[in-house]
Design a protein around this nucleic acid. Structure first.
Lengths: 401, 401
DNA sequence: TTAGTTAGTCTTACAGCCAAACAAATTGGC
DNA sequence: GCCAATTTGTTTGGCTGTAAGACTAACTAA
């Protein structure tokens, strides 16, 4: 059954076909290796229909037959797996001091993972765009060598991104009203694949939704733990961006009217009292410095340094206020702490949880769990690739090559 | 085109038919009166298909032919309108001191609107359920007299409602773990129509989404202004309830760690500093008392009483903090203030808007407008009926009678 | 009266799902 | 070794529902 929708567009047979192709593709992704009979039994589709759909997917080189089953009563089944080899999805994260590029195949296998230092804040958006375009071209060359068709590219940027991919404001990069999506498409000169731009927290949430240990959790929030703090909000299985695409801006919500001054000039913003800056001794400039200082904080915490433990507890309590806010408003099943929060999680999580439970009106915090991300620093880039795979999964299959 | 979905269920022809029937039905609802040719031209469906779909809708008595167009070149068109007469959707709101019942026809025309005083907090959930069942029976009798088939019933309750319609906690009613939905269905003895239970703020949001001046705004938040404050959150055109259905609980989010004590025991909850209780001189018990006191506040404000104006401004600023929170996190296009906020809106809105703009990171508050509801006190009950109509609109058409 | 225009139906074609029959390939009992 | 049982996957025929285009109907305007 098609999900009830308020979409004004009517449906026809092509939609039925596209829907069912996507259903089979997703099933193979999740259950591989599996047989046509398995698919028919689990999805409720007719065996004949499944055969037809699978043939189609094989023609498109999205799925591939592998060996047969053995040692079983009855005719052995030909097993199906995702065909990883002919396609690639690219995700890129532009940050203040580095650019991360990730390519994955259909099955989500990492094909490459580049990280390159970069002075985003120093240059203009145009310069950054040129750098990104260069990286994309190198990735594209590499994929061409492997004879892979690129399904799409998504660029993650920390800032407010319009629905049409314009970077409205990226404070840490110093960009304003940059048509990154359009410029990049032009710079790549008819790339032959769709180019999209999205907020970094949104993409990281998508990465968790597809690749993380809580993959498939329909209501999930990702909190970036950089100098800035942003949220990627997934409700009912989809990213929710709000009217103009500016949702998830939790960083400058006031937690304490008498709290520390924030970079934005206001007092007691979540970023100021629970951002990574609140943990560091000095105002660090480069991520290299942040990481060095962070290592030192972790060392002190491990050693049981009272002042450090008190600091982390305090930051955890503040962070918990922010998490409670979301638990009350959105009632997610899980809140995932990312970025620099990850190494600090052992000391942050207890106070975060205490605070969350204490401030949530639903019993047991509405079933909301708080965990540290396991995807590492490349989460947003990975999420960019995930967004490309999402569009394939929801029916936009690539043309036969 | 079917909306891209991650729904695991495959599609078949029945889904195509249901989708297209719903498309035509919604078109007639929005554009009535209109001709088959209009529908074909606007939806992209084939003329023959539209004829077939319309015939089906007429057979189901959802649509009806009305007169012909005149004074135009070409063959006159037979115009179509929604057939209001054979169906009814019922919404009921249970509150601390009153029960509201509303019935509407397919087109949303009000068929009846009852308000009855009620001592919800005094009795048990079972007693309340019996009262509600009695009201439903009376409504059903009335509808039967008009020869209307009841499409469904939704009951709104202020509290935490599970996904399956169990009232987990309704603090103001003193209910816990009441299977209202199941009990009501049993009390009505095979009513022949679906019974649902939902949170009152959620239903009020649905009412605004369908019947309010901002109907159709895909990202919309409704704030109830009763003794308690709750939010109904619509994102991307659908109510978002979160994992367990406990979303929208904004009332006990702490705005000021040193603020007034809340009924829940915490300090500076939104409810305590921006709820209607913060406006009133005395702790009022019954809504009748609240309304009397509120009239007095409005009178004083109109007369320019300095203390009253300062009080309302202060409450407005606090409320603005809460609205800013949602503007940052969810980026809705509009936030609608309901309940007792409505009469106070002229004095609240200026400070709410100032605060919202000042605290939102996106420029111009991300395009978020704050307005007072125009649907009156029955919003939640009306929303209950709206929820029933929603399920019809998304393809669950009633059987032919 | 005739040409032009628009509405709605009828006929035919086609796409795609389903059910059931059937062919294929294996295990296991006798 | 052979046959029954079992399971897989394909083939065939039927059904549903949309699309395209011819056709009929009903009107205006010249």
């Amino acid at each position: 059954m098609i999900t009830p929708t308020t979409d004004p567009r009517p449906a026809d047979f092509a939609d039925v076909r596209a829907t069912n192709l996507a259903v089979v593709l997703r099933f193979v992704r999740e259950q591989a290796p599996c047989s046509r009979a398995d698919i028919a039994a689990s999805t409720g589709l007719n065996k004949a229909t499944v055969s037809s759909l699978v043939t189609d997917l094989i023609d498109r080189r999205l799925v591939r037959e592998t060996g047969l089953t053995e040692n079983r009563v009855g005719r052995p089944a030909t097993m199906l797996v995702l065909d990883g080899s002919p396609y690639a999805a690219i995700g890129i994260e532009v940050n203040v001091d580095y650019v991360t590029a990730v390519a994955v195949d259909l099955a989500g296998e990492r094909l490459l993972s580049w990280r390159r230092s970069f002075s985003g804040a120093a240059g203009t958006a145009a310069q950054a765009m040129a750098t990104v375009a260069g990286i994309v071209r190198r990735v594209a060359t590499r994929m061409a060598k492997e004879e892979r068709q690129i399904l799409g590219l998504t660029v993650g940027v920390p800032g407010l991104i319009d629905a049409d991919g314009t970077v409205r404001i990226a404070p840490n990069l110093g960009w304003r009203d940059a048509d990154l999506c359009g410029d990049l498409t032009r710079a790549l000169r008819d790339p032959g694949f769709p180019v999209q731009v999205d907020n970094d927290a949104n993409l990281a949430a998508l990465a968790e939704y597809r690749f993380g240990p809580h993959a498939g959790t329909a209501n999930l929030v990702y909190l970036t733990g950089e100098i800035g703090v942003g949220a990627g909000i997934i409700l009912d299985g989809r990213l929710r961006r709000g009217g103009q695409g500016y949702g998830g801006e939790i960083g400058h919500i006031q937690l304490d009217p008498f709290g520390a001054e924030c970079r934005c000039g206001r007092l007691g913003c979540l970023e100021a009292v629970a951002g990574i800056g609140a943990v560091l001794e000095h105002a660090a400039i480069s991520p290299a410095e942040v990481e060095v200082e962070l290592d030192e904080v972790v060392r002190l915490a491990r050693a049981g340094d009272a002042r450090t433990l008190a600091l982390l507890s305090s930051v955890g309590h503040n962070l918990g206020k922010g998490v409670a806010l979301m638990a009350n408003l959105l009632n997610p099943e899980v809140v995932i702490l990312g970025g620099y929060y990850v190494p600090l999680a052992p000391w942050l999580l207890p106070s975060v949880e205490t605070e969350t439970r204490g401030r949530t009106i639903a019993p047991d915090a509405g079933g909301c769990r708080v965990v540290a991300s396991t995807l590492g620093y490349g989460a947003a880039a990975l999420g960019g690739a995930a967004r490309v795979l999402d569009s394939v999964d929801s029916g936009r299959l690539p043309r036969v090559s």
